[in-house]
Amino acid sequence: MKTILIKEGQEVSQNFDYVLDLVENPPRPCTGCWSCWTRTPGRCAQKDLDVFYRQYVAADRAVILSRAVKGFVSARLKNLLDRMIALFLPYITYRTGESMHLPRYERLPKVTVYYEGDFVSPEEEEVYLSYLKRTMYQFYTQCEILPMERFAEKEAAQCAKP
C-alpha cells in the first residue's frame, strides 16, 4: 500500500512513500488562471507541485498533518487545497441535488487528517472539521479526521499491516 504524507513541519518517525512538508516547500497560491481546466487540461500551469500531483494520484492513502491557524486550515494547506482543482473536471453535475465538479481521475487516495490547533471554542473546532469534511466530500475522497494525539498509535498500526 502506497501511503504519502503531507505535513506542516511536524517531526515524524514513521516511514512514508513520499513526504510533502508544506513548511519547507510551501505551495504557490492558485492564481485562478483556469489553465488546468481550459488550456492544459488536468495540468497546473505552475510546476512546483508536479511531483506531488503524481505521487498523490498514485497513492492508496494520504495522511495530512494539519496545524490549524486562527481556527482554520493554515494558508499553506489552503493553498494546497486550492491547487487540487487540477485533479477535477470543470464540468458540474447536479445529480446529488447540488453543484459538484466531476472527478478527473478514476480513483484518488483515501485521506486521514490528524489535526492540532489553537481552537478557542468547541464551535470553532466544529467549523474547522465541517469545512474539511465538506472539502473531502467535494473531492470524492473517503476521509477520516482525528486529533493529532491519535497519529502515533494509528499510523504505527497501519505500518504493521502487511
Binding site: C30, F72, A75, L81, D82, T135
Partner: peptide, 10 residues
C-alpha cells in the same frame, strides 16, 4: 475557492 477563502486571503 474550494468552499472557503483563497489561500492568499488566509
Amino acid at each position: 475557492y474550494v468552499h472557503a477563502m483563497p489561500g492568499i486571503v488566509m
